[in-house]
Each structure stands twice: as C-alpha cells, then as structure tokens.
Computed example of a mutant assay.
Amino acid sequence: MFGKTILFSEMIPDSAWEADFNEWYDTEHIPVRMRAPGFVGAQRYHGVDSPAYLAVYEMESPAALATPEYKEIKGSPSDRTRKMLNGVTGFTRYIGVESGHWDAPAGAVNDAPVLYAVFFEVPPQHADEFDRWYVEDHIPTLMKCEDWLKVRRFEIVDGEPGKYTHLALHYLASTAALSSPERDEARRSPWRARLAAQDWFKGHYVVFEKHGQRFKAAL
C-alpha cells in the first residue's frame, strides 16, 4: 500500500464545519482519487499541535498527477469540493519521490499511530553530506528505539508554500518515541552538530496522529 511517490497535502477547516469537511474528505475527495491510474492508497492524519489535517497519497510515480483522469478530477470539481477548497486555510502540497526506506527489525509497517514529518531545504553543495549523515548516522540511531517503526525519505520535486528539498516521514508507535533516549542520542551526534552549525540547517518538524483507516486504490 506504499508507493514510490507521495503527495503530502495539509488543510485547516473552520471548526464550525469541521465534521462536514471530514465527511467530504472521506467519502468524496479521497475516493475519487483512488479511482485514478497510478494512485496506490492514502492515509489521513490530524496535527498533534495544530488544527491541520494531513493526507498522504501514495502513488506509483509523479506521472499519476499528469494522467487525463487526474486532470479531469482536478479540473472539474464538484460544487461541494469547490466550496470546501475555497474555505480551507493552511494549505500545503508537496510531491516527493522516495529515495529510501528503513523498517524496524520486526518487519514492514503498513500503519502507525503517529507520523513525524521532517522537512529540510538543503543547498545542492551540502546534499551529499546531509544524505550520508541521515542514512549512516541519524536513522540507525533513531531506529534503536522500539517505538521507531519505519522511516521513509523523499526528494521533493515540487511543492508549496515552503522551498523544501528533502522530507523524511517517521512512523512511530507513540509520541513517546520523540522523547526517547535514542532520539536524544541522535540529536547529540557530533556529525549532526557539525551540520547544525551551518546556517542552512533549519528543519521544519510536524507531528500528526492517524485519522481514520487507510484507503486503497479502487480495483
């Protein structure tokens, strides 16, 4: 149910019609996309420290967003969809192509209660060292924590409003993983300290809790 490409999209509905927003998202907005070629699945989340709702769409490749079927979905929204999209705030939309994934020793995880998203804008001349630090130092240390179930890394090929280049999605058994000794160890790493001393090393960190069940592509 995971694809090699994701669409990471956040929205904040007005609290007065939040229930209507969720009903629309679950019964119309996602299901119509699950019928489009190249869409593999989707999972919704809600911000732990924000009112934002997140949908992570799983796709075979970025080409899923360029098919005639998807262009029809985007170009001919229902009246209800138009009303909802015109009323939300806090909109984000990032397309990421997977560059690697790591599973806990217990095996692959399809669902996790908590999603921890980490964005970075990495200058091209620092990308190689950033990637090596993440893969060789950061991820191995984090995944010594039993609540750190999976890590997926992405290169962002398009998106707004941030100018991020790299995204890591960390799948956690609980938010307790974020205050674990293993995460403290990872953040005290000398390699990380060398990177953190540079002006560009400014991550954007967001924590979400799973909202609802995973959607699968229509057969």
Score class of each variant (00 low, 15 high):
M1Q: 10
M1I: 00
F2M: 06
K4M: 11
I6M: 07
L7R: 00
F8Y: 15
F8L: 13
A16G: 02
D20R: 12
N22I: 08
N22K: 12
W24E: 05
T27Y: 03
V32D: 07
R35Q: 14
F39N: 06
F39Y: 12
G41R: 01
Q43R: 07
Q43E: 04
R44M: 04
D49V: 03
S50F: 02
A55D: 05
V56Q: 07
E60H: 06
P62L: 02
A63E: 09
A63Y: 09
L65C: 03
E69M: 03
E72L: 01
K74P: 00
G75I: 08
G75F: 12
S78V: 07
D79C: 00
K83P: 00
K83Y: 07
N86K: 10
T89F: 02
F91K: 10
H101E: 09
W102T: 08
D103P: 03
D103W: 06
D103L: 08
P105R: 08
V109T: 14
V109M: 07
L115G: 07
F119M: 10
F119N: 13
V122A: 04
P124T: 05
P124N: 10
E129W: 06
E129A: 14
W133H: 15
Y134P: 00
E136N: 15
H138V: 13
M143Q: 15
K144T: 15
W148E: 04
R152M: 01
I156D: 02
G159M: 02
P161W: 04
G162E: 09
Y164W: 14
A168D: 04
Y171R: 04
L172N: 11
A173S: 15
A173W: 03
S174P: 00
S174M: 11
T175W: 05
L178H: 09
S179F: 08
P181R: 11
E185D: 11
A186T: 08
R188N: 14
S189P: 10
S189A: 13
R192F: 01
A193H: 14
Q198S: 09
K210Y: 01
H211W: 11
H211T: 03
G212D: 05
G212N: 07
Q213G: 06
F215G: 02
A217L: 01
A217K: 12
A218M: 08
